[in-house]
Design a protein around this nucleic acid. Structure first.
Lengths: 159, 159
DNA sequence: CTGCCTGCAAACTCTTTGCACGAAT
DNA sequence: ATTCGTGCAAAGAGTTTGCAGGCAG
């Protein structure tokens, strides 16, 4: 789905919940979708402010749940006390993450079997699965030899 | 491994790093191993203080890394901004978690294939895996019907 | 006009840290 | 005696919230 379609989806989502279409919310949306890799709330604030200087930190934190609940963004928690977000233009389902401990780069990996696993395991316990997370933390071989992580430039090749 | 063996392991670990065997550290150890399910730093503080009233919050936070680094405790981060800990008497490797969203109960599930997955995926990216996390968040069927979660009493049957 | 939205700043939660005293070796 | 370990309280990071004014519908 292209960004224009996503923007429509956001508008529809807001309308369906009787939420208002404010300049700040659109600036935050645009800032989020201008970024192709992971970002933090603080980074999003910076970017959104370049589009609309009036955006405040509070509005960022109040808008992020709207974007994640509408599946426009995915929230990625890698166990640090900070959350990362990622535009989700394709409305993709669960993905796994591989986190490079040397440069913090997060690779998104498709992992369709996660859904199957969730259903299998949860059902056994009398539960209905809602979401899954699968993350691999790893060290970079190149970094170990050269002291430099190549991931910043290689970027996350979506599998 | 029984608790006595774990206590020895802790003593050995401290000795090997030239760390001192203090009453507070032992009280924290004992409090942690007296609990069979997951606990937070704050809960551990309460329990440890019953064994040694002088234990402070700072010492809890300073001791937890020692216990996790020696594999005596496992740290479980389920994406809330609080960390859970779990005594790991059997020195078990990676496990998956199923989290009941209705009662917050955490089930520990053995998932040996996680290691395989980590190696497979990380290697493809030129990385060497360090750890894996696999978590399923789910709603409780019983809770949906009766408004009560049975997990508190059923406890986590280790798979 | 109405009431949802906003920015500001203070509050909050969990965790970490500087300091001077205290205890293990 | 050394030196590491400790409690205390303050700091820190990230996020949330109360309030009074502002803007969308």
């Amino acid at each position: 789905m292209k960004i224009e379609g996503c923007r429509d989806k956001f508008r529809t989502y807001l309308a369906s919940r009787n939420l208002r279409l404010t300049n700040q919310r659109m600036a935050i949306f645009d800032a989020a979708f201008a970024e192709s890799s992971h970002f933090t709330a603080e980074e999003l604030l910076d970017k959104a402010r370049r589009l609309d200087a009036s955006v405040s930190r509070a509005t960022i934190y109040r808008t992020l749940p709207l974007l994640t609940e509408s599946s426009l963004l995915r929230e990625v928690d890698i166990g640090k006390n900070i959350k990362y977000y990622l535009a989700n233009p394709g409305d993709q389902p669960q993905q796994a993450q591989v986190i490079c401990l040397d440069c913090e780069h997060i690779f998104e990996i498709s992992a369709p079997f996660m859904d199957w696993y969730g259903v299998t395991v949860a059902t056994k316990l009398g539960l209905t699965p809602v979401s899954q997370r699968l993350q691999v933390s790893a060290h970079c071989d190149v970094f170990r030899r050269s002291g430099q992580c190549p991931h910043h430039t290689a970027a996350g090749k979506p599998a």
